[in-house]
Amino acid sequence: MTAAQADLQIDRPTVADGAVLWRIAKDSKVLDLNSSYSYLLWCRDFAATSAVARDESGEPIGFVSGYLRPDSPRTLLVWQVAVDASYRGRGLAAALLDGLAARTAAEHGVDTVETTITPGNTASERLFTAFAERHGALLEREVLFEAGDFPDGPHDPEVLYRIGPLAH
């Protein structure tokens, strides 16, 4: 943990955090923005498999949203990772991801993390590659959704990153 992370609290999101998480995702200009309603539901229904970082006043400044795959309940699918622009470059995304992986391993027996990344999203590629290295895990990549699979216009393919088994 860096000195910048020492003043931060990482915990589960609450419904009251939903609007701020939507804004952080919107302001990222990289993530596919979901409806504000979906962030509220996510904070209610998937709080156990998501994490939020808070500043010294308790305000959300970053988050990881995830869920356990129904057909593979020891696999955490990380949906989105976002950090407020004023807190980027401090290792917060890695701290959030490590904390969530540790919590879901302890509470749900998670031993594999999956996410999808569009080609060229260097920050996410580095985040998840470094995560695999820190956890002594294999990293496999394969295209999960081709560009043509998306019905709503041009979209880059989504590459599945499968990381596991995790060494905790």
Rank of each mutant, 00 (worst) to 15 (best):
V83C: 07
G164D: 10
R23I: 11
T116N: 03
F63L: 12
A137Y: 10
P151Q: 11
A48M: 04
L100E: 03
L68T: 06
T14F: 07
R54V: 04
S72D: 14
A101H: 01
I24P: 01
A137V: 09
L144G: 00
P151W: 06
L77G: 00
T14Q: 14
Q9L: 14
P60F: 04
E146F: 09
G120P: 08
A16W: 03
G136V: 09
V20D: 07
E56M: 13
E140L: 14
A51I: 02
P151C: 03
V159P: 05
G62Y: 02
R23H: 14
S72K: 13
S35W: 09
S50N: 02
L138G: 14
R44C: 08
A167L: 13
A3Q: 14
T116P: 01
D111Y: 01
D71V: 11
S35R: 09
I10M: 09
G136W: 10
E114V: 00
A85P: 01
F131G: 05
T104A: 03
L160F: 07
V143S: 00
H108I: 03
P154H: 12
M1D: 13
E59D: 11
P157A: 14
W22A: 14
D149E: 03
T116K: 06
E125G: 03
L31M: 13
Y161F: 14
Q80A: 10
E56A: 15
Y87P: 00
V30P: 00
Q80S: 08
G58H: 07
D55G: 02
A19D: 12
R12T: 15
R90H: 15
T122P: 00
R141Y: 01
P165F: 11
S72N: 13
A130S: 14
T2M: 06
L144V: 01
N34F: 14
T122R: 13
D7T: 15
H108Q: 10
A123P: 05
G99V: 07
A101Y: 01
L21R: 05
T115I: 06
V64L: 01
G148F: 08
D27C: 03
P165M: 11
A137C: 10
S28H: 03
